[in-house]
Amino acid sequence: MEEKPVKIYEKLECLGEGSYAKVFKARDKKTNVIVAIKKIKVIIGHGVDFCGINPTTIREIRFLKSIEHPYIIKLHHVMGDSLKISLIIDYMEGDLRNIIHSRTIAISQSHIKSYMKMMVDAISFMHSKWILHRDLKPENILIAPDGTIRITDFGLARIYGHFHDIEMTANVVTRWYRSPELLYGSTLYGEGVDVWALGCIFAELFLKAPLFPGDSDLSQLNEIFEKLGTPDESTWPGVSTLPDYIPYKKKTNIVP
């Protein structure tokens, strides 16, 4: 990580703010290139879960430094001091959620094909490097001015085992895009959690609304089973052995 940043960027506007970070649109004073600066606080003091850099930030920096792909957000620099860390990344005009829920933007089938091809290319590349994203959702698919996408937010990304034998937390992926094995508490999983999320985004592009909008984990499972049918040992061997398995009434009204 570089030392305290040189004053080479001019802040233009605040794009968003969270518990630990602010994101700014900025201009490189030398090149006039527009970038985004994600300023992350370093937590110091008592009465907090941790001190120092948020672990998700360390994870995000680690993965963005190790992956380079045209459809994955590029990390240009990491700058910082004892109080904050600044990530200099590509500036994007908006995200896929803005497009999906816009009342003025029509999404054609060719647009959907293009978006999905780019997302699949990026995720396939990550999986070839044994990296799971674990938080794919429209908000994390940014749109560049030329219409191409950039997958962002690697705070929950994780290296996974070649034989899927490494236990991981099930508390990942935003609920509407969370796969059934995660909802049932599985700690042994692989590429399927990202592929399921991509499928949910695919449907949302057509529907212009979430496919499975559950408001709790149980209602999320119910949303899935209402549309796809209820799994059992004949259709999903081992489902009844998952940590949080609960038998559901058999759903037969399955969407074709």
Rank of each mutant, 00 (worst) to 15 (best):
R103I: 05
I89Y: 00
I89R: 05
I123F: 01
T104L: 08
V193T: 11
I112K: 05
P180C: 14
E181C: 15
V193I: 15
M118L: 04
S186T: 15
H162A: 04
P213T: 09
H101I: 03
R178G: 12
D95E: 14
E191Q: 04
A157W: 05
Y177S: 09
I159R: 11
Y160W: 04
D95S: 09
V193S: 04
D165K: 08
D215N: 09
L182K: 10
V173D: 04
A144R: 10
S110G: 01
A144V: 10
R158G: 07
N171Q: 12
A157Q: 13
R150C: 13
G199P: 03
L156P: 12
N171W: 10
L87P: 06
S86P: 01
L207G: 01
W130Y: 13
W130V: 12
I159Y: 11
S110H: 02
D95H: 14
S108P: 03
E139W: 00
Y184N: 15
I105D: 02
G185C: 08
E167W: 08
L198D: 00
L136F: 00
L96T: 05
V193R: 06
Y177N: 05
V173C: 13
I88W: 03
L205A: 06
K129M: 12
R178Y: 08
I107P: 03
S108L: 09
R97N: 05
E167C: 15
D121M: 06
A197D: 04
W176I: 08
H111A: 07
G192T: 01
D165N: 08
E191A: 07
A122K: 02
I89K: 07
M126E: 03
I112W: 01
F206Y: 14
T148A: 11
A209D: 02
F163S: 11
S108C: 05
Y177K: 11
W176E: 04
L207D: 02
A106K: 15
L183I: 12
I143M: 13
H162L: 09
D217M: 11
N171K: 14
I105K: 12
A209C: 04
A197Y: 06
E191R: 05
